[in-house]
Write a protein that binds this DNA or RNA. Structure first.
Length: 324
DNA sequence: AAATATTCCAACCGCCCGGTC
DNA sequence: TGACCGGGCGGTTGGAATATT
């Protein structure tokens, strides 16, 4: 692993360390301490630069280094510290005995960062991502879950359970909507103020359940051909056998798009939906705001919904406190 | 079974900062 | 005061290992 063996312009070796080199470095430092890193290689009989020796020692050879998988506690600690410290890996490492900054940095980049993105959280701000599209699969899935629950032939014994489940689904659905909306409102880069957001939200009540989002309902939103990109079989479904929601994951979207014809700006549109190619958050916030505007001029005036409007949800103090 | 893609992580790179002269 | 040096730091690279097609 790492780099191929090579040497720099001074003839100093680069690349992976051999066990012989490790042994030389360790025995020298154990006897004399590292002292001046620049002088160390010559004194220890190593054909390496001092910097390389220092990195090898601090990241790998130091006796108190803990190796292996990160525990749940360590993971939580890193997440919490990253919220406060950002990419200050050495500062974070000080709170994790035995872990090096390099190891923490790698763990962040390979695991935690991706994990947060999958959860719809911006890894840099630790806030929910400020776009509707990131939350769209979850929103659609929750809407469909609700419909699924309502359509089931429940008997008297399960009616109570149905009601509770439906309430839970409603609550979760509204919470997701609220999160998305609040993120946009909180974004310093978005152009829509809370007032205009409320206005927009009132006008997109048609998205409230129990109406199920179909590809045709999504067609044309914000000039983005979602219907073409999310084919019917990628729409969220409820897995009856294991009780899981198939949200029509980003991977599904990506796969389905390979079979779609490439329309104008299709690659640009596609990038909107990719989990791992995140567009700038500012763009997404503006796009979301544009979508609201587009919807408000083109859809469902006067459609009544048994559910509270988004603005009603937003203005509900009790709910706000609960979700705060 | 082979080809291809993705993940992982040790090691390197280059910038920056503080200490010394 | 500015040049130099040592060391620390975050970001990036690239190849082995592993997973997927």
């Amino acid at each position: 692993m790492g780099r191929p063996p090579s040497s720099d312009e001074n003839g100093l070796k680069k690349g992976p360390w051999t066990s012989e080199e490790d042994e030389k470095l360790m025995s020298y430092i154990q006897k004399h301490g590292h002292g001046s890193w620049r002088a160390l290689p010559q004194l220890a009989g190593l054909n390496r630069c001092g910097k390389s020796c220092r990195l090898r020692w601090t990241n790998y050879l130091k006796p108190d280094i803990k190796r292996g998988k990160f525990s749940q506690e360590e993971e939580q600690t890193i997440l919490q510290l990253h919220t406060v410290l950002g990419n200050k890996w050495s500062a974070i490492a000080k709170h994790l005995p035995g872990r090096t900054d390099n190891e923490i940095k790698n763990f962040w980049n390979t695991h935690l960062r991706k994990k947060l993105i999958k959860m719809g959280i911006d890894p840099m701000t630790h806030r929910p991502r400020t776009d509707f599209f990131a939350a769209l699969p979850q929103l659609i899935a929750l809407a469909n879950l609700r419909q699924f629950i309502n359509q089931q032939p429940w008997d008297d014994h399960t009616a109570g359970l149905q009601e509770q489940t439906a309430q839970a689904a409603n609550l979760q659905y509204m919470q997701s909507l609220l999160h998305s909306a609040a993120s946009i409102a909180a974004s310093p880069t978005t152009t829509s103020s809370l007032n205009s957001l409320n206005m927009d939200l009132e006008q997109i009540n048609f998205l409230s359940p129990p109406q199920i989002l179909s590809p045709s309902a999504l067609e044309g939103i914000g000039g983005i051909d979602l219907a073409g990109q999310m084919s019917q079989n990628q729409m969220p479904t409820f897995d009856h056998t294991i009780g899981n929601i198939n949200t029509g994951s980003h991977n599904n979207i990506e796969t389905s798009e390979r079979h779609c014809s490439e329309g104008e700006n299709s690659s640009q549109k596609r990038s909107f939906l990719y989990e791992n190619s995140l567009p700038p958050l500012t763009d997404m916030a503006i796009a979301a705001s544009n979508i609201c505007a587009t919807i408000s001029t083109s859809n469902c005036n006067g459609v009544s919904s048994p559910f509270p409007s988004w603005s009603e949800i937003l203005l509900d103090e009790e709910l706000l406190n609960e979700f705060a």
